[in-house]
Design a protein around this nucleic acid. Structure first.
Length: 490
RNA sequence: GGUCUUGUGGCCGAGUGGCUAGGCAGCGGUCUGCAAAACCGUGUACAGCGGUUCGAAUCCGCUCGAGACCUCCA
């Protein structure tokens, strides 16, 4: 299949035709979470965005290797003391092994992502397992003369690099002169030649638990080098797509480009993709701002800002209803609208399974599938895709009501579209059918049969009572001409 | 202060020059024992001002507002 996929490349700030470097293979690297806390709604955005990219490229027939790292070392704390590692800090407070803490949150991250139906990446490397690769990369940068050692730590020489390449700032639009004049208060500041220089290796202070031997000191790698080292290891010196949140644009991704370019003479990837932030009351939802709501809190509804619980699929649908490069504003109202809309789509999907075919079709669904592809090809425009799917839902409902007709072929086309786009690419699944077991189904058939008898006998008190009681049990009963149907709340 | 992004109807959110995006909510109706769902109908939306154009939400300028990054953050 010839790709007509356009991807907005942050590097050029334009949509570009997607042409893999080595078709049919595609390499994707996405910056994953730092595992020192539970995943919040903000983490769901890149996970779902790049899950979509992964699913769609796979659907198009590419052989995709999707690498999403886990940062379990290397992030420096700037608020507290002397550059203590975030993981190590948490560990010491709770007297746990650092890796125990990391593993705890990795497990929780995975279960949240599984709930959201986010596919596991092909490789999920942990920074702590790639210290050797990082040291090697730092050594290469030193050898090329773009880094210097100071007191056991190694820093990237931004000014020297920029003089030779004129690249520092190419991704973020930053101007080097401005950066050089910026003052910071990070530890080790006095060791740097320039304030814009960033750490490749940090000498560990005596109380620092997570530490490794290196040619320069016992210490730990800087944050940016982990992604460069691991992406190079698993995807090569240059791969197709590098993704992450917009907040990582600078300095993280800018520094990755600098590191790769200083060693390989070119940047790490062809396309840079950045998802936008989720806001809450118009402000970025973030750990440092303390205004985040974790995914588990959404699932359980246990948070002061939440009026109710929201299912994982509601969250997923909510995120996919906005384009990934737009900010998305959280509110109970918006989430409830997403929940309602999603259930409408799922109801149509259920009707579709049982639709009666006619000899002729009274509506034309010919161009629908292509329109769905067109939407995705336009830089993964999921809101437009979803709008098309609602058009299909409307047609299905009309057929269900006997107001329109569809041939068997057209019904099968719709089934194919729903299966391909809703289930396959958007990764949305009907939560209701998932937890309705066969036994419950039989019991429900029986109960509804008894209720129907009550209705036939005009014993509405009884029939309504049955419906009310079921309602309390989280089961909604809907009457129609063909009989009653039921669905379970998630 | 610098770099970048952005401002769409009650809410969320597509749309880059001309053709009703879509969802939710609201209102009126159909259907129904009732309810729910569904269906039909229903909205003088494009921050303000000026410019370009036969024509602008869409391009340009200015004003005002909002946000992200510049320090860890998805």
């Amino acid at each position: 299949m010839t790709s007509e996929l356009q991807i907005f490349n942050t590097l050029s700030r334009k949509k570009e035709l997607f042409e893999p470097l080595r078709p049919p293979y595609v390499g994707i690297y996405v910056c994953g979470p730092t595992v020192y806390g539970d995943a919040h709604l903000g983490h769901a955005r890149p996970a779902i965005t790049f899950d979509l990219v992964f699913r769609y490229l796979t659907h198009l027939g590419y052989k995709v290797r999707y690498v999403r790292n886990i940062t379990d070392v290397g992030h420096l704390e700037n608020d507290a003391d002397e550059g203590e590692d975030k993981i190590a800090k948490k560990a010491r407070l709770e007297e746990l092994e650092p890796m125990e803490v990391a593993q705890f949150f990795i497990n929780r991250y995975h279960s949240s992502m599984d709930a959201l139906n986010v596919k596991r990446p092909s490789i999920e490397p942990q920074a702590s397992g790639h210290i050797i690769e990082q040291i090697e990369m730092i050594q290469q940068i030193v050898n090329k003369g773009f880094a210097y050692e100071a007191n056991g730590s190694v820093y990237f020489d931004v000014e020297k690099y920029n003089d030779e390449t004129h690249l520092y700032g190419c991704l973020s639009g930053r101007v080097i002169e401005d950066l050089l004049s910026t003052t910071r208060s990070l530890s080790g500041q006095e060791e740097k030649r320039n304030s814009a220089d960033f750490a490749l290796w940090k000498k560990a202070s005596p109380e620092h638990i997570m530490r490794w031997k290196s040619p320069w000191s016992e210490g730990f790698p800087g944050w940016h080098v982990e992604c460069s080292a691991m992406s190079t290891k698993y995807l090569g010196e240059q791969f197709d797509i590098h993704g992450g949140g917009m907040d990582l644009l600078f300095p993280h991704h800018e520094s990755e480009i600098a590191q790769s370019t200083s060693v390989h003479k070119h940047g790490p990837c062809k396309y840079w993709m950045h998802n936008n932030m989720i806001t809450i009351n118009g402000q970025k939802m973030g750990k440092s701002l303390g205004n985040f709501i974790t995914l588990n809190e959404f699932f359980t509804g246990e948070h002061p800002l939440l009026e109710k619980s929201y299912s994982p699929m509601t969250i997923r649908f909510f995120i996919l209803q906005a384009h990934y490069r737009s900010t998305l504003d959280f509110s109970n109202e918006a989430l409830k609208a997403a929940e309602k809309g999603f259930s409408r789509l799922m109801q149509a999907m259920r009707y579709l399974e049982k639709l009666t075919a006619s000899q002729t079709s009274s509506v034309d669904i010919g161009g629908l599938k292509q329109k769905c592809y067109d939407a995705l090809n336009e830089d993964f425009n999921t809101p437009v895709l979803i709008a098309h799917l609602f058009e299909a839902a409307k047609i299905i409902n009309a057929v269900q009501n006997g107001k329109e007709n569809l041939t068997l072929a057209d019904i099968n086309t719709l089934k194919d579209i729903f299966d391909t786009f809703i289930t396959g690419i958007l990764g949305l699944s009907d939560e209701i059918s998932d937890d309705s077991s066969e036994t419950i189904g039989k019991l429900m058939d029986l109960i509804l049969k008894l209720r129907q008898q009550a209705k036939t006998d005009k014993n509405y008190a009884l029939s309504d009572n049955i419906r009310d009681e079921l309602n309390l049990a989280g089961i909604t009963v809907k009457d129609s001409k063909e009989g009653a149907t039921w669905s379970k709340e998630s």
